[in-house]
Write a protein that binds this DNA or RNA. Structure first.
Lengths: 147, 147
DNA sequence: ATAGAACCTATAGTTACTATAGGTTCAAGG
DNA sequence: CCTTGAACCTATAGTAACTATAGGTTCTAT
């Protein structure tokens, strides 16, 4: 027996996810419907492990399910080139950078609030943090500095 | 000065959110059930506007609904002190920092992949990015929970 | 042969909303 | 006073990406 077989539990463990997640990936079309035993249990082999690893890793990198589908399409279908994949990775890097920027602003706002709230023994209605949160600000979700 | 009244639409506009969001906040107990007109339309006034602003701003800062409830409790109930609020803000700043760290790692990984993929004209099965994604990674990077 | 772990399907729950359907009320214009 | 039509009402379903549950079946080891 050259080709090792895996139960769904073993597969999930190898990819560091849960059995239910594999079910889910099958349902949404990321993982194929594998062969079954007589009794109906799924039987996986090495390519499945690799594919699931690919999916998990892509998800960890912040690709959404639909994007992972795109990536898998590049792999599943012939005649695709590395450039397409590279472009998606670059785009994803930009998205991630934007998230980082958002969070940096957010953290600054929080830190500023904390700094202004020097003492902790004021009653709440005198708290600069609460005050800052109450302040009416521009209706737009623009991330202006919190003053 | 006076007691200006607002419809739910006006309220939502003032806080920069949607009417449905206000409905939702009422349902989950962040916003109180306001008085109504004869016909059943909600009537809001200035304190409602402030409260909704507080909620929106807290949400923007990354506090979850349940955390916002905590914060509001500090405000709604007497005998709370600024220190409790400050502690929550500091904790939130730490959470945000962790997210930033995660995303930084993620971006590095993506950038590294992109850098290695010098050319874009290789067939996909020769693409270093795809390769990197396929690679079996340490499965225990995730938080294993005790069984 | 049997216990129990692992598997099966189907459905509901999670978070924080958003969108829809199908109806009612309100304010303005004629 | 009557009619639009925008804004409102409630209730329900949908979103993303799983996770959890229920209730049943199969596999494996003793």
């Amino acid at each position: 027996m050259n080709y090792e077989k895996y139960s769904i539990g073993q597969l999930a463990k190898k990819a560091g996810c849960k059995v239910e997640t594999v079910h889910y990936y099958e349902k949404v079309g990321l993982m194929p419907e594998p062969p079954r035993t007589e009794g109906g249990h799924r039987i996986y082999s090495l390519p499945h492990v690799k594919r699931l690893n690919f999916i998990r890793r892509s998800r960890d990198l912040g690709f959404r399910i639909e994007q992972v589908k795109e990536l898998l399409k590049f792999i599943d279908e012939p005649n695709h080139y590395c450039g397409e994949v590279k472009a998606m990775a670059m785009q994803q890097a930009r998205v991630v950078q934007e998230k980082i920027d958002d969070l940096q602003r957010l953290k600054s706002a929080l830190n500023e609030m904390v700094t202004h709230c020097a003492s902790g023994n004021k009653p709440v209605d005198d708290c600069p943090i609460v005050d800052a949160l109450y302040t009416e600000h521009s209706t737009e979700k623009s991330t202006e500095k919190a003053t």
